[in-house]
Design a protein around this nucleic acid. Structure first.
Lengths: 191, 191, 191, 191
DNA sequence: GATGAATGAGTTTTCATTCAT
DNA sequence: TATGAATGAAAACTCATTCAT
């Protein structure tokens, strides 16, 4: 029943892993085909070309991540609780899709991204921006340009995630708890 | 310095910029040659091949950065002062070599890095690790795996630096001061 | 006629049109399948491969044309009347099968034609050759190599037919009459 | 001295021959490269892609032919003498460039021709059109649409030329003389 | 030493053909 | 019998590297 899109999914999965591990340009179509257990030509039945493939992948995961952050957002709770929500979802996303966030991060400024991809990425940042702006208005968040704050949290977390992926750090609950606190201490307003 | 190495320097400069902007795999030798105003063949007089070029570049800038951090390190001052030293040097390095730190960051896990490059990168982390370990021992730094702390500072700062390079954020003294405080609040021990 | 060969006919019709419009090499099997409203695989139920298809098509239309020319040939009438017969049938053939003659013409020297196709084409020329040889014997047709005369009539007429198909010239009875006269004046013996 | 464009010329020569013999779509880049004694990649140093190559070739020979027809045109001589001039130049062109006219003819309606190619081809027809229109005005040329007359002469002559190329007919002065008369009798006004 | 034209190995992409359904 | 998804061989095209000048 689900067999109809199985190959397409395999291709996307393989592409995600390889793009995350080696980057778009160092990943060849035959590499993806081999990893996905399909013929090279099959990839072109599902994606017009390599750039369409990478943009499809990018948009998909950015949207999944965006929706995950948005869903059940504790609108009327404290800024700290909202931060906790966002952070936990970010952790969950990296748990569920080991390579997705790293792929997003390493490719979000790439020359081959199309307008839809850029727009999707902007939507993602908007969530974080709105949250931080609200927090600054309530004097709960440090008075630094919002973009800078996002960069610090996002950049820091992802660098850490990469270490876990590389096996240099073990992902424990305590570590995750500590990292959340670290990031919170980074961005919160210190009286 | 002398005219003899002028071409070599031009090649390295152009390669640095292009590798930082497009990545190693998307940068072609003719692109570098054109940007450096030399013939494509000339690059091969100075570097055996493209991988040797990128490794030379990587090692060079990692070492320059490492030495910059080490030089005049305030060994016997407070942890906060040592942090200030490191942070200011990091800022200075990005000011002087706009693309170097981003290049290091985006290529430090690449498949084409040789042992010397990996070792140089390890040396760089060692400086930060030793500093943080000392700080933890003195109870001035948060009790989180050192690697995690480095990731957060390094990752956060670089993400911010990218925004400045992209023109989305203006590099002011106030911003830099704020970012240093943010990072310090991230890693310091909160009583 | 029966439903059993309907698909085969659709395939042949579509192939004829596409081969005439784009040529054999620029026409893909999926193009033909789509135009014929059949699956690509279906084509292979009726024709072993693409070359068999084009040869089948070529032989079929060459034979239809040959028979059309032969049928009711006014054996014992004047050369001029025989010429009229042949010319009118040529016109009728292009009227009935818009693309057939042009397809024959543009593919009659192609690298993929098999012996049967070449033979069929030779048969076609034989009719014209015999007619012209007879006319030359009777001193009604110009004394020029027969092949040359055929080339001039055939080539000229087809080039004209192309202009009509392309819509650059309107097919009127007067035009057709004029073209017949033109061709007759070309080949007849001028005292 | 002329070595600088030698390869480019070899490529164009080989492409002309192969396109004329097999057609654009059945001719591969490696075929051209082999025939021209260059590497396949070399072709791309001179021509952006295969379509640019074929358009360059087409425009070049159409222009050469156009200029040959125009040069020394006997403006104030009789229509018959003008016809003689045009016909002799057409013969000369096929003598000097065995494949060029046949290539032009078999590719002048191809899907891959660009605007410049189409325009160049229109210019060529304009010469013939102007000549015939003038002749019709002087009542020396048959009263048939000009396009039709061009088609007949051009089409007839080329079909003949093809037979000579294929070796089925020998190119003698007498034959050429006869063909010119044939074509003249086709288009001239018969009182 | 410096160059950039030339190359061919390796890439992306197409399409005739097969075969499970 | 009919299909069209899947394939891989072969095409177009790119680019690191070489080498004659």
């Amino acid at each position: 029943m689900a067999a109809m899109t199985e190959k397409r999914d395999n291709i996307l999965d393989s592409a995600l892993t390889l793009f995350a591990e080696r980057g778009f340009d160092a990943t060849t179509i035959p590499m993806i085909a081999k990893d996905a257990n399909v013929g090279a030509g099959t990839i072109y039945r599902y994606f017009e070309n390599k750039e369409v493939l990478v943009n499809t992948l990018f948009q998909y995961y950015v949207q999944v991540f965006t929706e995950l952050l948005k869903k059940d957002f504790p609108e009327h709770h404290s800024i700290r609780e909202q931060f906790h929500h966002l952070f936990q979802r970010m952790i969950r996303f990296t748990d569920e899709q080991e390579h997705a966030l790293y792929f997003i991060k390493t490719h979000n400024a790439a020359y081959f991204l199309d307008d839809a991809s850029r727009e999707a990425f902007t939507d993602l940042w908007t969530i974080l921006r709105d949250f931080l702006d609200e927090g600054k208005a309530e004097n709960e968040i440090r008075d630094l340009p919002t973009l800078a704050l996002i960069a610090i949290i996002f950049g820091g977390f992802l660098e850490l995630h990469q270490l876990i992926r590389a096996g240099e750090l073990e992902r424990t609950e305590a570590l995750m708890q500590g990292v959340e606190n670290t990031c919170w201490d980074a961005v919160r307003h210190h009286p």
